[in-house]
Design a binder for these strands. Sequence first.
RNA 1: GGCAUCAUGGCCGAGUGGCUAGGCAGAGGUCUGCAAAACCUUCUACAGCGGUUCGAAUCCGCUUGAUGCCUCCA
Length: 494
Amino acid sequence: MKLFEQQELQVYNSLSKSKEKFKPIHEGAVGMYVCGPTVYSNVHMGNCRTFLSFDLVFRYLKHLDYKVRYVRNITDAGHLENDGESGDDPILKKARIEKLEPMEVVQKYTVDFHTTMAKFNALPPSIEPTATGHIIEQIQIVSDIISEGYAYEKNGSVYFDVIKFNEDHTYGKLSGRNLEDMISNTRELTAQSEKRNPQDFALWKKAEPQHIMHWPSPWSKGFPGWHLECTAMSTKYLGNKFDIHGGGMDLKFPHHECEIAQAEACNHESPVNVWMHANMLTLNGKKMSKSTGNNILPDELFTGNNDILSKAFSATVAKFFMFQAHYRSILDFSNDALEASEKGFNRLMDAYRSLDGISTSEKSSMDISAWRQSCYNAMNDDFNSPILIAQLFEASKFINGLKDGNETISEKDLSILKTTMHDFIFEVLGLVDVASENTGDGNKLEAAITLLISLREKARANKDFATSDQIRDQLLEAGIQLKDGKEGTTFSIQ
RNA sequence: GGCAUCAUGGCCGAGUGGCUAGGCAGAGGUCUGCAAAACCUUCUACAGCGGUUCGAAUCCGCUUGAUGCCUCCA
């Protein structure tokens, strides 16, 4: 029996604004598309939060035994900073600044993105298509939309006719906007726009002479509109209708709204069952952003080389911090919050590691099966990782009680406890036990510390506290903490 | 200006009608040669004002404040 048959997953759908029972179109298989980064600069922590949120979704779906096809694109064709004629393409801009070929810019930051995601122990998606690799598919969609009568050409550019579309469809249903309001509230001053009305958006843009990334098309030598690539790549790899489409909250409008319009215009059906939006990571109470500079980069976090934090934090601690908040809540990035998370994370890892030394009894003093289900209940409730983590801390408390002999556990329950802790910490949350990783040649280090512990025991027996305290304090300075318990001394590496 | 979201204890952050988050920090205790760790106890809050209800942090209204989107953005 597959796990998903035993667990009822509820997912919040941005489209219906409510939690819905998750039921994939094809039983046992899930198609998920997530809008990836535009690769014209290093991804910052805010970008990472979104991708880690969906990594959690991916991991949990897989854990539930779903076969998941996870498609996350790379936007490697730049898009104009404003929809007018004077817009700038960030990739071209960056290429000028760094004196690189545009595709060199793209390559450089794609590699950075992959490296960063690997540091966060995020799983690679099943397919990672690029916009420039799907120009033909995008041109085809533009043709289809024109044939359907929802787009028009002007001077070699093609625009989506939102008003026409809205006559027999609903534009704005995802973001809760209505077209009449939008039109009446427009303070549009761009008089010489080619668009019939300001709500229209570009499907194809004719390239200006200085625009060096361009492709031939029936309308002009040009480049595709921003919203088109996601429609092309999601439907190509997942079909005209698929289960989950995710992305950052800031993409809800206009990007995802336009994706819906494009897909409905040419495929006559709504493309996505469940729309998921991950909320923003803020810094100083404001959204992290590439353009405003209000951001912190992953490497600045890992090295401690930044003005925001008092010290360096590991990728896994940063991830743990983010998962202590729900993916749909705004989360503010701060030193205090990270420090608190780091301490909590270390405590959780200590408890997990001490599972190996637990001895069993006849009966358990905690209902392990009920606890295990409560972990699933947390994740089943729209991937509520903070509740899951709270449950892991409940288990930690129990494990510590076992260690101190205040609690008991049966052999069978211990096995369930170990498996469940392992699955949720490492498989679902995708955390990494940094301390044990640091001791790759851990046996040697462990032998050395064990020796020091026994020397300290001898000193203590002889009441030579100067020596015993020196061993304890100097090890602590080196980041190794000795812990005296009833069963003897153990240690943990910070 | 329009649309939307949010406001929880010292800090971070769950929770959506009656029962409980959790982490960090603080206080007291057990343990210890002294500590640390661990354990136990404790501090018990829901922006303000009204309304609905037997009962509201949770529903409704208003006020205040903050944020996001409306232009590239995770």
